[in-house]
């Protein structure tokens, strides 16, 4: 088991390397360069050339890449040009990370709680009214763009019934993480709750059909033939088998939340990584963009690893290999 994990981690190294090249190329493809919009329009070409030279932008691409990746390895992600001008990117991301994590975790937990309860209700009452309602609900939430619901929730709970703050976080650099986590709950709850409420569809559909599939399996008949009640068969046999494929998705969810929720954070004015990314995109702050993309690429790979580990941990059939 450990050996498999270690091998997977080692495989991640070339993968990360590839991701970094991809991101670097994408950044190069962006129109303009870091000086775009930051230059005095009256600067003479010689000054621009000097500045470009100082930033290493006149070197061949591969050298620029080597410089960049070398700095990344030393924890130097560059300096922001626009979002928080003059701050190091590391500092910006650090300041956004905790809000994102605290909201992301709440959102992920709530998503699973909602999706699982909905799927259980649906599967237990297949083709009955409650099942139909939940099916329709999940179809709607997946068909309508999520930001529409975010605006609706914003209007409802911030303006019409103002029980949640309009923007910001309760996180304060001077407080410990746990203190700030709890003071942040008031800010994080509405966006997290909203994300969770409207993103149950894929887990719901998947789990519901798993549950229905599993109910028709032969081992269910065996358990019934032992005299196990329908309720206990559900609880002791069907649930675990039906959850199995979902469990592997949890890895992605955990790392996915760290990447930030772009729409939700932006709409709810919640200063996390997702909002940062949107800000950086609109102001073409390329050091920040590449840094966030690099973070997300890393997290996606980590999510894959985590998912494999979780699958192997819960499924004895995979465990042996």
């Amino acid at each position: 088991m450990w050996r498999t994990i270690l091998r997977r981690v080692l495989i991640m190294i070339p993968q990360l390397f590839l991701v970094s090249i991809l991101i670097f190329m994408l950044a190069q493809l962006m129109p303009g360069d870091p000086f775009y919009g930051n230059l005095n329009p009256n600067s003479d070409p010689a000054t621009i050339a000097r500045m470009r030279h100082a930033a290493g932008l006149d070197q061949p691409l591969y050298q620029q890449y080597i410089h960049w990746i070398d700095r990344v390895f030393h924890g130097d992600l560059g300096t922001s040009y626009a979002v928080n001008k003059g701050w190091t990117v590391t500092r910006i991301i650090a300041s956004r990370l905790w809000p994102t994590i605290s909201m992301g975790i709440i959102a992920a937990i709530l998503t699973y709680v909602f999706a699982i309860s909905e799927a259980l209700l649906s599967a237990r009452h297949e083709n009955k009214t409650i099942d139909r309602i939940l099916m329709v609900w999940n179809t709607i939430t997946s068909a309508v763009p999520s930001f529409v619901f975010y605006f609706l929730m914003m209007i409802l709970f911030v303006y019409l019934i103002p029980i949640f703050p309009a923007s910001g976080t309760g996180i304060d650099d001077s407080q410990s993480f746990t203190t700030s986590f709890f003071s942040n709950l008031r800010y994080a709850f509405l966006p997290a709750f909203t994300i969770a409420l409207f993103s149950t569809n894929s887990i719901f559909q998947y789990l519901r059909s798993n549950l229905l599939d599993q109910q028709a399996q032969d081992y269910v008949r065996t358990a019934r033939a032992k005299g196990v009640t329908i309720k206990d068969v559900f609880r002791k046999h069907i649930l675990r088998n039906a959850f199995l494929p979902i469990a592997s998705g949890i890895g992605y969810s955990i790392t996915g939340v760290l990447g930030g929720a772009m729409f939700a954070e932006t709409i709810f004015g919640y200063p996390g990584i997702g909002a940062l990314f949107v800000q950086a995109l609109t102001s073409r702050d390329y050091t920040v963009i590449t840094a966030v993309m690099l973070l997300q690429g890393f997290l996606a790979l980590l999510g894959g690893l985590l998912s494999d580990v979780i699958s192997a941990w819960v499924d004895p059939r995979i465990r042996v290999k």
């Binding site: 399996q217 032969d218 081992y219 008949r221 065996t222 358990a223 033939a225 032992k226 005299g227 196990v228 046999h237 675990r240 088998n241 199995l244 819960v314 499924d315 004895p316 059939r317």
Partner: peptide, 18 residues
């Protein structure tokens, strides 16, 4: 399971894999 026990055709699918 008390007065009657039953054996099925496919023993692999008839046992809970987990």
């Amino acid at each position: 399971g008390v007065s009657v026990g039953m054996i099925f055709q496919d023993p692999l699918s008839s046992l809970n894999p987990l």
